[in-house]
Nucleic acid binder design. Structure first.
Lengths: 331, 331
DNA sequence: CAACAATTGTTAATCGTTTTCAATGGGCAA
DNA sequence: TTGCCCATTGAAAACGATTAACAATTGTTG
């Protein structure tokens, strides 16, 4: 029923080896053979079965990008970078979502163990660091946008601690002393790093850390709204709020706007990620921007190098972030 | 170097066939053999090579979801529905992005031709209808969230014409007579359908269609901003604007808010998709909601049925949409 | 205890490619 | 004419799994 290389060979009156050679642009084939094969391919509507090819070659030229969900809009640029780098080397990028479930993440990594893809990039790991780091010894695996607390895996990210420090310091520089933090209950390394940066900024400015000013929630806008409500109901209210994501910040600002708080004056906001809506929301949100495209491009470039090498690069690359200043910090 | 079923067989002191039987849960294997094999698998860290398995079985149990980009946030729910339906039948869903390029879309469909996946769902087709419809004769292919103008392919969507009609009619019901439309230059069938619904609503209300009130742009917020600016600079300004996406609407509302136009009173807005930000933006946006999860779930269920059948279902299923009424229409 | 049935194990073919190695034939120099 | 080299070509062996067909072992029963 399926058309195979054999059918093409028969139709073109050559051997399967010749067909294969034509299809793979080998140089030792006569012009006649090329013509005949191409005509047969055309006529039969043949396309080579990758399962056969990949099995024989023991490579698929496919890389799996594993994300939590497609909801986080900045993944888009990261993925663009990944694709550009991959295509340049003849690879395809496939995406799969873990739905933030460790078990499912392991299931997806099964594609790597089973050779259905040549390599994988984890962008929102839920599995514990030990597991991931062990797997990276046997398989071509990298981390992007995140970091493990074990540093023996290829990793491309930003310096989240520094970014948290920078954002918080900026608020301090604006004369703020009561700075709230809205972060996630899930202790992803990036959240922890950002929180540590926040604490260091306070410390270096001589401001005592007040745990009442930290609200733990989810990644969504609702968390921002609730967090802002809770922080603003304190006796000693914050005069600025740093959130570990723009989505959270926007939820928080929504609360502020609806309760007559003048954003950018009474209360400053600093977000993270520079998502599209952060400059569409009124007032516009100040935020930390990650070099998304470059992060994606870099991790794939490094991963592909690792694929060809048997002394893999296990470094952590921290690319520079930047602060985008807008109305929410009075700029 | 790689551990194969042979290594496991050797380690467990049984034949490869026995290992395969254990791995595939066949019933005619002794308990002893099962134990031995499992122990060997564990010890060696073996996982079966899918390329070998898939080649032999001529199926991969993988379905490719092809989207334009991950930017459109409502894909998230569609994909969740797809995954749930797929997992229930033992399939995995992989995602790939065309970056809205027809050539690249064809490249991705190559995974279907080459048997790297068993089926595919197109969610933002850029290839022409004839091509897609022809391909669906030979391969397991479906359309979701969109529609071809040729109706001989499995298709799961909403009634976009009706949705455009409903949204526009609602604005008319609010006493509006000068209703602007911001839509996309790219003539995707859904955009065309929504525009046709808009026109029919005007017609049925006896309002003459004015082409000056239609602005063509991209899918982004910027288009909304520019569109709103252009429409509001007409001598005969609109009193309501319907956009074919929330992102566009939000961009348009941004312009209105910043120019002192009272949204929900001076100017009504109706969007499409009910993205998360549509109820975070102030004022909140009225919009058309698609049953995203159900659309995704349904298309996969139908596609899997088609995979097992040689008389494939080529129907178009239109699932019900709903109107979400918020502040932007004065609700 | 023989005969047969039920259970378990083995061999070898198969999926569709790529690739090694050997064979073929033509052209050219001696 | 003969021999040699080169460019093409083809036959067959991989790649790693599944599985049908068959073989061997064990258990059961008259």
């Amino acid at each position: 029923m399926n058309i195979t290389i054999k059918d093409v060979a028969r139709a073109a009156n050559v051997s399967v080896a010749t067909v294969s050679r034509v299809l793979n642009n080998k140089n030792n084939v006569s012009e006649d053979a090329i013509q005949a094969v191409n005509r047969a391919v055309e006529e039969l509507g043949y396309s080579p079965n990758f399962l056969g090819r990949d099995l024989r070659k023991s490579e698929t030229k496919r890389i799996l990008a594993i994300i939590g969900s497609t909801e986080q809009s900045f993944y888009n640029d990261v993925l663009r970078g990944m694709q550009d780098a991959a295509y340049a080397e003849g690879y395809d990028v496939l995406i799969a979502t873990t739905r933030n479930d460790a078990e499912h993440e392991m299931h997806l990594l099964g594609m790597l163990f089973s050779r259905a893809v040549d390599g994988a990039v984890l962008m929102a790991p839920r599995l514990d660091s030990k597991t991931i780091s062990d797997l990276s010894k046997r398989y071509k695996l990298a981390i992007c946008l995140e970091r493990l607390n074990i540093d023996d895996i290829l990793c491309v990210t930003i310096d989240n601690e520094r970014a948290g420090f920078d954002a918080t310091s900026y608020l301090i520089g604006k004369g703020r002393r009561r700075i709230g933090l809205i972060t996630t209950e899930i202790r992803s390394q990036s959240s922890v790093d950002r929180e540590n940066g926040y604490k260091r900024a306070l410390k270096e400015a001589g401001i005592p850390f007040d745990e009442k000013l930290v609200y733990y929630g989810d990644y969504d806008a609702d968390t921002g709204t609730k967090g802002c409500e809770e922080l603003m109901s304190l006796d000693n209210k914050p005069d600025a709020i740093f959130s570990i994501s723009d989505t959270i910040s926007i939820g928080a600002m929504t609360y502020a706007v609806q309760h007559g708080i003048t954003v950018g004056k009474d209360l400053l906001f600093f977000g993270f990620d520079n998502i599209a809506y952060s400059h569409m929301f009124i007032p516009k949100l100040s935020t930390v921007e990650q070099p998304c495209y470059l992060l994606g491009k870099t991790v794939i470039e490094k991963l592909i190098v690792n694929m060809k090498s048997d002394t893999p690069d296990k470094s952590t690359y921290k690319l520079p972030h930047s602060l985008i200043l807008r109305e929410s910090t009075g700029d």
